[in-house]
Computed example of a mutant assay.
Amino acid sequence: MTLFHDWQEEIKPLLKKYKGKKHPLDYKNLYQVVIMVILSAQDSDANINKIAPLLFENFPNMESLAVSNVESLMQYITKVRNYVTKANWIIEIARTLKTDDNIPKSMEQLLVLKGIGRKSANVIIREAGINAQGILVDLHVIRVAPRIGLASESNDGNKIEKQLMQIFTQDIWGEIGMAISFLGREICRPTNPKCGDCPVSAVCFYYNSKAK
């Protein structure tokens, strides 16, 4: 990991570019966020967006899931990776929470639910508009944060999250992870990154190493 004099200041152009941008999952409310982040694990947001309309037409809220069963749910998510396991998780969560109003809004309470890890919890908290309790670290952040120089190389999202939480003040936790993720999706691609379009290329370890 390469530390610059003030990442908090240097990262501002990236935050300006992506601040407040909605998560790529095409949800309509917090209930849909919860279900879609569970389904999107090891799958693509685009795939979940495709199956979501019919799914939510039949299961419009937590109450409808709570009185249903795994078999009924599975028929709407068969194109999702690990759909059997995820169906079991979702039905268990619905029967535990019973209503949308009971969806937890704290990291501690969310992590108790099956199928929800820190990444998913951070998405739910951000999209609920609640003060961040961590930093979203998805596959894009795992790849891009070390490339920029914000974290050491690791496949462990929790490890990278801890490093980012040490660098940035809590008031930008809710935005920084999503901003790095969008940077990875749109500009900082695995191959042939568009460094000329990058708002933080001036302080990027990869770009400056390449330039030299």
Rank of each mutant, 00 (worst) to 15 (best):
V203A: 11
I11A: 09
E175Q: 07
I142F: 01
S209Y: 14
L54V: 13
Y18K: 06
F56H: 02
T2E: 07
Y76M: 06
M1V: 13
Y27L: 04
P53D: 01
Q42E: 06
C195D: 10
N192D: 06
D101K: 13
P24K: 00
Q133R: 01
P190D: 04
V34Y: 09
G117F: 14
M165H: 06
I103G: 00
L111E: 14
R143H: 14
W89L: 09
I167Q: 00
V80H: 00
I11L: 06
N69I: 14
V203D: 04
Y31P: 04
A132L: 12
L3G: 00
A87I: 10
Q109A: 15
K114R: 13
S201T: 12
Q166C: 15
Y18D: 05
D100Q: 04
C198G: 10
P13L: 11
K50P: 01
A52V: 10
K210T: 15
L113K: 02
A151D: 05
F205W: 04
L113H: 05
H23Q: 00
R147T: 12
G157Q: 03
I187G: 12
K28S: 07
L15A: 04
N155Q: 13
S106V: 13
R118N: 08
W7P: 04
L113E: 02
K86Y: 03
P193G: 11
E63M: 14
V137P: 00
Q163W: 06
K86H: 01
Q32E: 13
P199C: 11
F168S: 03
G174W: 00
I48H: 00
N69E: 05
E10H: 10
N88P: 01
L39H: 07
Q42N: 11
A87E: 02
E108T: 13
N82F: 15
M165W: 04
V203I: 15
S152D: 09
N155E: 15
F4Y: 13
L54H: 03
V80P: 03
S181P: 11
L39R: 01
R118E: 10
K28P: 01
A66F: 12
P24F: 02
P146I: 09
L97N: 08
L54K: 09
E92Q: 15
A132S: 09
G20I: 08
N131V: 10
K28R: 10
T78W: 03
V67P: 01
L55N: 00
C195W: 09
G157R: 09
R81M: 06
V123S: 04
Y207A: 13
N29A: 04
I51T: 03
S106H: 02
M165G: 09
S68R: 03
S181R: 02
I180D: 03
N49E: 05
P199Q: 07
D45T: 01
G177F: 02
L25F: 07
S181C: 12
N47V: 04
Q8W: 03
Y31A: 12
E186I: 12
L3R: 08
R95K: 15
I91P: 00
V200E: 01
S72C: 13
G115C: 13
I48S: 01
K16R: 13
D156C: 13
Q163G: 01
N102P: 01
